[in-house]
């Protein structure tokens, strides 16, 4: 089995119009590796090229240059798509089908035989929280949240090894989001690679181990969430420091300030922070917080896209 679920090499997509003659580079030379079994988030502002990138993985769009490989196979080979489950963002499921019929159809397209489909459909509908009534209701009568759930069930029909989800919790209420997250966590435990394309940065931060940020078609940043959000210093927050101690600590810290009666100090190294902590404890100060500074994924994202 290959080490990577997804590998792209200098993947590029240029859209050209003949009249008027225009070119738009939607994806520009992106090389990315998504390890098998990882939870990977793809982030970027609107129009950054995320959807085009995903479409090339699924061979819905053909690359202008470079290539995409899924579990060692070129994405243009239909067999490369056999282990993929996909939920598109602005999906348009056939409204004339029932929830059951839709899963049956997409299951058959994935090559599942009738007995397997019949066994799997009720299992999945139950797993995504759709009750018996919804099974035989036409999709035209489904709410947005129900469509997302049945869409997720569709992506899971053939027990894929790679799940590509485009805004999976879009239109789903908080309870449903939790349910979807639970389903995804269970899949992660089973070793399924999950590739998430979402605008909900808090959700990505909560779920994904690794992320990549695309900006104007280029790969702007990639790494583990832990690495990207870990700050470059250590924070100490204390109360009850004497004037002389405060002066000394302020002198040692990189930055310092006061808020709500607490002295907030930021140190460049762990050693400096520990020395300051010892000093504070030795002077009977009360320690409110101590630890490594962290950024949120949103802060990292904003810094990246705004070019800070």
């Amino acid at each position: 089995m290959p080490d990577y679920a997804i590998e792209t090499e200098n993947l590029t997509k240029v859209f050209r119009t003949r009249w008027p003659r225009r070119e738009l580079t939607a994806v520009d030379n992106i090389s990315l590796r998504v390890p098998c079994g990882s939870t990977y988030g793809l982030l970027g502002p609107n129009g950054a090229g995320k959807t085009t990138f995903v479409k090339m993985l699924l061979s819905a769009a053909h690359p202008t240059a470079g290539r995409a490989v899924v579990f060692g196979r070129d994405s243009r080979d239909p067999a490369a798509r056999a282990p993929i489950g996909y939920l598109p963002e602005n999906h348009r499921f056939p409204t004339y089908l029932t929830g059951w019929g839709m899963l049956d159809f997409y299951g058959a397209l994935s090559g599942m035989n009738a007995p397997d489909r019949k066994r799997r459909i009720p299992e999945l509908l139950h797993q995504v929280g759709l009750d018996e009534r919804a099974h035989h209701l036409r999709l035209g009568k489904y709410s947005k949240g129900m469509l997302q759930r049945v869409g997720l069930a569709q992506a899971l029909m053939h027990a894929p090894k790679l799940l590509v989800l485009d805004e999976p919790s879009d239109g789903v209420d908080p309870v449903g989001r939790r349910q979807i997250r639970d389903v995804l966590h269970a899949l992660e435990q089973k070793g399924v690679t999950i590739f998430l394309n979402s605008h909900l940065l808090a959700e990505v931060e909560l779920f994904c181990r690794e992320v990549a940020i695309i900006q104007k078609g280029k790969l702007a940043l990639s790494g583990t969430v832990l690495e990207l959000t870990s700050g470059s210093g250590y924070r100490l927050e204390i109360a009850g420091a004497s004037e002389s101690l405060e002066t000394e600590l302020r002198g040692r810290a990189r930055t310092a300030g006061s808020q709500n009666g607490f002295l907030q100090l930021l140190f460049a190294t762990r050693a400096d922070a520990n020395e300051a902590l010892d000093l504070a404890r030795g002077n009977n100060c009360e320690v409110e917080t101590f630890g490594r500074t962290r950024s949120t994924l949103e802060e990292v994202f904003m810094k990246t896209v705004e070019g800070e």
């Binding site: 479409k55 699924l58 061979s59 819905a60 239909p78 067999a79 490369a80 798509r81 056999a82 993929i84 996909y86 598109p88 963002e89 602005n90 999906h91 348009r92 499921f93 056939p94 997409y106 397209l109 994935s110 090559g111 569709q154 590509v164």
Partner: peptide, 15 residues
């Protein structure tokens, strides 16, 4: 060929 439908069809292991 409706957007949102064709992508899903093309994502399946079918030529």
């Amino acid at each position: 060929f409706e957007p949102g439908r064709i992508e899903l069809l093309l994502s399946k292991p079918v030529s």
